[in-house]
């Protein structure tokens, strides 16, 4: 869960687009340009932490 989905060959660049779109739609959080980083989307756990923080903030 801490490994990069890209490094594991699970997703490509369109996969990243799909994931960010899915998160915006499913969790109703707005992903800003400055959010688009390896720190936020580098692994499943990082994405979960990002979404959790945003949901708590209500944005």
């Amino acid at each position: 869960m801490d490994r990069s989905l890209i490094d594991q060959g699970i997703i490509d660049s369109f996969g990243l687009v799909e994931i960010t779109g899915f998160i915006e739609q499913e969790f109703r959080v707005k992903i800003r340009e400055e959010d688009m980083t390896r720190e936020a989307f580098g692994s499943m756990n990082k994405m979960a932490r990002f979404v959790s923080a945003r949901v708590e903030m209500g944005t």
Binding site: I6, F14, L16, G21, Q25, E33, M36
Partner: peptide, 22 residues
Amino acid sequence: QIPTNAIIFRNHFRFLAESREE
């Protein structure tokens, strides 16, 4: 040709570049 939620997306070159590095 593209995924369904890629009809419109922010073309963040630096963010997407990581997926193309390999």
